[in-house]
Computed example of a mutant assay.
Amino acid sequence: MLRRLYDWTMALAARKSSAVWLAVIAFVESSVFLVPADVLFLPMVLARPRRAWLYAFIATTASVLGGIAGWLLGHFAFEAIAQPVLAFYGKLDSFNALKAAVDYETIVVLLITSGLAHLPPIKVVTILSGAANIDLGLFVASAIVARGARFFILAGLLRHYGDSVRHFIEKRLGLITSVGAAALLALYGVYVLLK
């Protein structure tokens, strides 16, 4: 199933309507969808580097709006809608463990790490933020910063370095994600120690 979703998403990058599909996938990724928008975003930027900033703006805006939808699901409809969605993707246990173990500040850090590196998955954190009553303004601000940074940095790198960056990212995505998340968690650890 995952491979079919990935192949379907890759085929969308070649269509004239790819910008619309990018917005749709970035939106639903932040609340319910399994495949990250990057799998469509990367080939689109490589195919049309002059549109890199437009694609980054579309992906960021749609992702933040999708995050708001996830927050609303967690805040107003957790048991009716969000819980079955998380259970479907096998993320309900992760969600319940996170909810039991985190405080307000930790959720803010998770918003940043999930926005930048998908650790934990963004949909889990957006729903968790709503269920935990994270301030919607703070949620939106952190989503704009984290998701915007992710898409605009990728757009700049791909626009400047092209295919060589794509190959580097694809070969080392797990390592890049882990190092980025570890750095953010280390910064949070320093913050807690200095507090």
Rank of each mutant, 00 (worst) to 15 (best):
A69M: 08
L157H: 02
L128A: 12
T60I: 01
V20H: 08
R159A: 10
R159M: 12
Y161G: 06
W8V: 13
F27T: 07
G189R: 12
V45R: 00
S114C: 06
V102L: 12
V28R: 03
A155K: 00
F152I: 09
A56N: 01
A69Y: 04
M1C: 15
A80Y: 09
L175V: 11
G66P: 03
T60V: 04
L65F: 02
V192Y: 12
P49W: 00
A11V: 07
Y188I: 13
I127Q: 06
R48M: 00
L119Q: 11
V64H: 01
K195N: 15
L72T: 05
A11Y: 10
L98K: 03
R50K: 06
V20R: 10
G137E: 09
I81P: 02
L40K: 00
V32D: 07
L110F: 04
R150S: 11
A47V: 00
S31A: 13
S17I: 08
L12W: 12
A37I: 02
R150L: 12
F152K: 03
L187W: 10
L184W: 04
A155V: 01
I122W: 09
L128T: 02
G74H: 05
F41A: 00
G130P: 03
V125I: 13
I176Y: 10
A143R: 08
L12P: 10
P43E: 03
F78P: 07
S17Y: 05
A132E: 13
V35N: 04
D7G: 14
L193S: 15
G90V: 10
T60D: 03
F152R: 01
Y188F: 15
R15I: 11
S94R: 03
I153E: 05
S142F: 14
V140P: 07
I112F: 06
F88V: 11
M10L: 15
V190Y: 14
H167V: 06
V109I: 08
R15Q: 13
M10Y: 14
T106A: 13
A69R: 02
T126S: 14
A23T: 03
I81W: 10
A82D: 08
P49S: 01
S178A: 15
L22T: 01
L173P: 03
K16T: 11
A59E: 04
S129Y: 09
I122H: 09
K171V: 02
T126Q: 07
F33V: 01
A52Q: 00
D93R: 07
Y161W: 13
I153Y: 04
E170W: 05
V179P: 07
R3V: 15
Y55H: 02
L158V: 01
D7F: 15
F95Q: 05
A181P: 07
I169T: 08
L73P: 01
F41I: 00
E79N: 08
R4T: 14
Y55D: 01
A47P: 00
L185F: 14
L34Q: 03
W53L: 09
V165Q: 07
A13T: 14
L157W: 04
S114K: 01
G67A: 12
Y89G: 15
A117V: 08
R51Y: 02
L40W: 00
S17N: 12
G180S: 13
R172K: 11
R15G: 10
V24I: 14
